[in-house]
Design a protein around this nucleic acid. Sequence first.
DNA 1: CAAACGATCGGCT
DNA 2: GCCGATCGTTTGC
Length: 215
Amino acid sequence: MAHHTNQIIGGHALSRLPLEFYVRTDVVQIARDLLGKVLVTEFEGVRTAGFITETEAYRAPDDRACHAYNNRRTARTEVMFHEGGVAYVYICYGIHHLFNVVTGPENSAHAVLVRAIEPLEGLSKMYERRGYPAGKPLKPALSTGPGSAAQALGIHAGQSGLHLVEGDTGIWIGEAGMVLPESEIGVGKRIGVESAGTCADRPWRFWWKRSRFYK
DNA sequence: CAAACGATCGGCT
DNA sequence: GCCGATCGTTTGC
């Protein structure tokens, strides 16, 4: 029951994305498909949620920008080799916690980085986590950029490996029944991966043009 | 054990 | 647009 729960969040009736959504082999398509879905967290009884508005795909073994390039396994990247439907959260520049969705079958290290969300519920909690003064006008910087989006949602590296489909881990993604037309999806190169050679040119970054919450 | 390196952010020019 | 902060992870010696 718990993992098939339909919930009303921010006025939208959400159904939890099933495992089949995540285990598909085309991580680039999944990165597109995640736009407009709702990322929900509920920690210590406080729920925060937002529309996913910007994503990037990362894919081992051929993608030099991917932490698991060449299928390299380390303690950190091990969760990327799990079957899809779990979180991969890692610390970047010693400070920022970046949230990814692991995709594909077991032993394929694919993941989608969530780069931005548009707040839908729990705005005051997001302000608190981000250290913004309450009552200020809502700016995209609250939850745009992967470190900022994760921080607004209370996500940290200790949650890497948590399941998004099975059980009540406090993190899940819901479907609001909305289908984005191609015309509303922006496509471009990934950000911050210049050192990945020709892989840096792959157009694997996606954003929802109608939102203000992307870079 | 030492050192370099980030899938970034926010402040300042 | 530029630049420094900051520290866990990874790799090299």
